[in-house]
Write a protein that binds this DNA or RNA. Structure first.
Lengths: 121, 121
DNA sequence: ATTAGTGTACTATGTATAATAGTACACATC
DNA sequence: GATGTGTACTATTATACATAGTACACTAAT
């Protein structure tokens, strides 16, 4: 796996995050083919079932699409945002902010991180 | 438990977050005594062991302190921020940003949420 | 001294999830 | 037909969560 900064995540979640990041960074483009489940398993030193779980979630999230017998490909970016997805996501974000503040991290520093992240993705 | 917006968290983690939030909001002040493990368990409809786990984490995080035989009390706010804590926290924050962008949520909206959260805590 | 109320530690059980291993199948391509 | 796809199973191991119950050292009040 790429980094060990995400030890708090399960293997399949790290892989999902890694692929989502590469899409946002333009490394992976719509139509690009992902390595097969078995190939990715070799690359990332994971069990094929673990990779399959990651691919399944990417497919369910609309990040990728599957052409049966051919492989998994990067989908076009989402155009309209799901309001229910936003509503479900916001509490997660607010919880992170509370965690940060409890650690003594200022909101201004979070704003700075946000801008820096914006440059990367 | 207060809200069900945090279904993604374990019971003990929700309780930790709830107490941290109340501290940030000034509802709980340094020196205030938390309900006993058994009392809190009744209030929140939890097993005393689950509450004890939450109290243990709060103590380890320096959020509270224990006076043996007397109870658990809110500690003074952290003055100096642990650099290691920041280093460990940042990947979490960046992962959340990636998740948001993948859902189609703009960084500007995250900035807005940040400012709104700043008003609450 | 006794009693009651603290946090804490321990064992145990049931449930759920994560990650592994192995097998099998329908599909598309060559 | 052979190969490479994703997918669906079963099974095992390990870990985490939440529960239940018991016990102990400590403090405070009676």
């Amino acid at each position: 796996m790429a980094t060990d900064s995400y030890a708090h995540l399960a293997y399949y979640e790290r892989l999902v995050l890694q692929i989502k990041t590469q899409i946002l960074q333009g490394i992976l483009l719509p139509g690009d083919k992902l390595p097969s489940v078995r190939e990715m398993a070799k690359q990332e030193q994971l069990n094929p079932n673990t990779v399959a779980k990651a691919y399944k979630q990417l497919d369910q999230d609309g990040i990728t699409y599957v052409e049966p017998g051919r492989g998994t490909f990067i989908a076009e970016p989402l155009t309209k945002v799901s309001t229910t997805a936003i509503a479900a996501f916001r509490p997660k974000f607010e919880a992170i902010v509370v965690e940060a503040k409890s650690l003594g991290i200022s909101v201004d520093l979070l704003r700075q991180w946000l801008s820096e992240a914006e440059g990367k993705i």
